[in-house]
Design a protein around this nucleic acid. Structure first.
Lengths: 214, 214
DNA sequence: ATAAGGCGTTTGTGATCACAAACGGGTGGT
DNA sequence: ACCACCCGTTTGTGATCACAAACGCCTTAT
């Protein structure tokens, strides 16, 4: 029992924050979409105050942008910024995978295979949001083994910034099966092959985002 | 005239945010120090609302920690977390330096040398805050040339998280002169030596933080 | 037809208030 | 001497309100 009280009552701004955050990270909101404090407050059944705190926090994390007049919306990323964020993903995720490798036992690898096979389902359903969610779950499951919470937090911040853009990306590419690089990652984990793992993770991260930047 | 309107009127929560942020990043607040919303509000002559937003934002960036009861304080980092943050600095700053290298002209190198010589002054004055500020200015000046705002923002977030801890570090080590690795960085820039630059930056970043983790 | 101006409405900002929880110091009991 | 309990005070949370700025749509003049 490592978590006796799973926080049965979360604060209002935390509910709004978490709700918005997963929505953005999973690509459920299109780039450039506008949000209003009163609208969010009504949607989550809170007043403007918690809605404002949640929005401010997401702005600080780069998940939302704020105009000079205070209007908030999901950002429309330039190609340069997409390239930067992809490079950050490559840097951090390669390091996380490398740190997870010596701790990756068979149970973890089986879990990854299970998640990966689930990707086939969402792909066949043309479910872009499901695809992003499952893909991120695959990566997070691996990186959790790295025992590096600060790095994982940074990594998720990058995912968050790319969320709305990822929707646009995976919406236009025609996927027919689970990504090949996920299989390479699993194979490298099984073999204990660190250089191979680093290459596979770097390829998987860079692959999709390169084509978005034309 | 690249900045015609330097934002002559900043919003209240932004003033609090910026004030607190530089104070934390420069190590002017000791680890574990507690802050109160009403206290901050009185100090910056605003009500609790802007103070709360500024604090929430800094908590989101990892510059402050919040207890389950909502009390905020500067974090006391574990050795594991310090090691993680140092590794993140190494990853990101090496990349930033590498991207800045092809754009580093003579004017930049002279600017860096000027900043570096300023470090001697603050060192002789036993001015820990001045040392941290000047050191960060040295790095930021170099990284600005990388034209990678997202990476620089991530980098500064790490600096922010290490701020209070850096004060404790530089307080205990006896510095007598400007860091040797800064000279190596400048030399590598002059020579256009990318591997040497990467090594110098990595060494400079890791050097101080390794000894803190015992 | 197009562009500029005006006005009602929407929206963010910051202050204030009521409330509950938590902290801290002091007291009393063992 | 030490520990538990209690109560006054401090503190964070969230709702509400007044205000100013910005937005959007419509009218009007050229």
């Amino acid at each position: 029992m490592q978590n006796p009280k799973p926080l049965e009552t979360a604060s209002a701004h935390d509910r709004v924050y978490r709700g918005l955050r997963t929505r953005i990270m999973h690509g459920q909101i299109a780039p450039g979409h506008a949000l209003t404090l009163r609208g969010l407050g009504k949607e989550f059944e809170v007043s403007m105050t918690p809605a404002r705190e949640a929005v401010q926090r997401l702005v600080a994390e780069g998940a939302l942008q704020m105009s000079t007049s205070g209007r908030v919306s999901t950002p429309e990323l330039s190609n340069e910024r997409i390239e930067e964020l992809a490079a950050l993903r490559a840097l951090i995720e390669v390091e996380l995978a490398s740190r997870a490798l010596p701790r990756a036992h068979m149970a973890l690898i089986e879990r990854l295979q299970s998640i990966n096979s689930g990707i086939a389902d969402v792909v066949s359903n043309r479910d872009a949001v499901g695809y992003i969610r499952t893909n991120l779950e695959f990566h997070r499951t691996l990186y959790l083994r790295a025992q590096a919470p600060a790095m994982l937090a940074m990594c998720e911040t990058v995912w968050l910034q790319l969320g709305p853009t990822m929707r646009a990306l995976y919406g236009r590419l025609r996927r027919t099966e689970a990504p090949q690089y996920h299989r390479l990652i699993i194979a490298a984990l099984k073999a204990g092959d660190e250089p191979g793992l680093r290459l596979a993770v770097r390829s998987d991260v860079t692959q999709g985002l390169r084509m978005l930047a034309n």
